[in-house]
Each structure stands twice: as C-alpha cells, then as structure tokens.
C-alpha cells in the first residue's frame, strides 16, 4: 500500500510562493483563499537568529481528526496513498472539520463545502507530481511513497534530520521538513 508524503527542504526554500501560485492556478482556488501558504518562522535572540521558511498545507495525517469528526463521511481517506480528501457533494458545510484541524488547513469554499489541499490527486493518479512540487524553482519539494524504501522521499528521510508540524496534536502528519 502506497503512502504518499511530501518532503520539503527548508534549507533550499526561499519562500518565493511559486507553489502557492501553482496551486491556485491548477486547482482554481477561489480568490482570497489558499490551499497552501508560506510561513517564516524566526527563532532566537538578536543577532543570532534562525529563520526557517516553510511551504505549508494539509498534512494528510495518518490519524486525521477531520475525517473522524465528519458527520456525513464527506471527509475521507482516499484509497490511493492515504490522501485525505473531501467529497464535495456529501459535505453539508458544518465546519466541524475546520474546528478539528490543528493546522487550520481547511476553509469553506464560497460554494459552501470544506476545501483544502488534495495533494493534486488528479495529477498523481496520472503519475505526475502535485502542481506545487512540479514548479518549485529551487527543487526543495519532493513527493513520493514513504512505504517504498527506495523512493526519493524515503532516502531523504533516512539521510537528513527533519521535523513535522505539531506532532503533539497526535495527528501523525505526513509533511516532513528537512532541517
């Protein structure tokens, strides 16, 4: 069983927002909304500061609270790669999934349903990378199957140090940030 993950090298990311634009274009994300975004995380004490730039999105968790709390089953885990998706025609717009997500990755589409990153499943099913990964000018983003020990993502996670976002929330997130 494939398990898709995204690995993002924070040492290469310059926060150019190409991934954000690519996502909006590829998925017709409505004006004013974002399925992915850039975070600049500055830590330390002047002058010794450390800045990490991250491209963030839905973490396609192994323990997705948005799927657990959905009353209709609209939020579900896709058969391919454990990707968390929303079946728009089953969503009633109750917003429980928005409340349950510690990453605030979801929003209400102006048409009324819960919306978020799909890992561009329509592209992945055709063997392509998600739009954000495919356009990254610094090649800092990698997409692949973590269950395959020889995949690029598996090898990177073996070789490099990394962290996840808010692991303490217990969601078992699947976006990995190389440090």
């Amino acid at each position: 069983m494939a398990r898709f993950v995204m690995v993002i090298d924070t040492k290469k990311c310059v926060g150019c927002m190409d991934c954000v634009v690519a996502c909006k274009t590829e998925n017709d994300v409505p004006e004013g909304f974002n399925r992915d975004w850039i975070v600049q995380d500055v830590n330390g004490k002047f002058p010794s500061l450390n800045m990490e730039i991250r491209s963030e999105r839905c973490n396609h968790c192994d323990n997705p609270p948005c799927v657990t709390c959905c009353p209709t089953g609209a939020s579900h885990v896709h058969d391919l790669g454990g990707v968390v998706l929303v079946e728009y025609n089953e969503c009633i717009g109750c917003k429980a999934c928005i409340a349950s997500c510690p990453y605030d990755a979801r929003f209400v589409n102006p048409e009324g349903y819960a919306d978020k990153c799909t890992f561009c499943i329509h592209r992945v099913e055709k063997g392509e990378d998600p739009a954000c990964v495919s356009v990254c000018p610094t090649h800092c983003m990698y997409f692949g199957d973590i269950e395959d020990p020889n995949s690029k993502v598996s090898l990177l996670l073996k070789q490099r140090k990394y962290h996840n976002l808010k692991p303490e929330a217990g969601t078992k997130p699947h976006i990995y940030y190389l440090v």
Binding site: F33, N34, W37, V39, V42, L49, I98, F107
Partner: peptide
C-alpha cells in the same frame, strides 16, 4: 528569545 511566525495565508474565517 523570540519566536515570530509570519504567515502568507489569509483565509476568511480562519485567519
């Protein structure tokens, strides 16, 4: 020590 987050996301109802 500082920890400052700057986020480009401004989703209505979320941010």
């Amino acid at each position: 020590m500082m920890n400052e987050l700057t986020n480009t996301r401004h989703n209505p109802g979320i941010d």
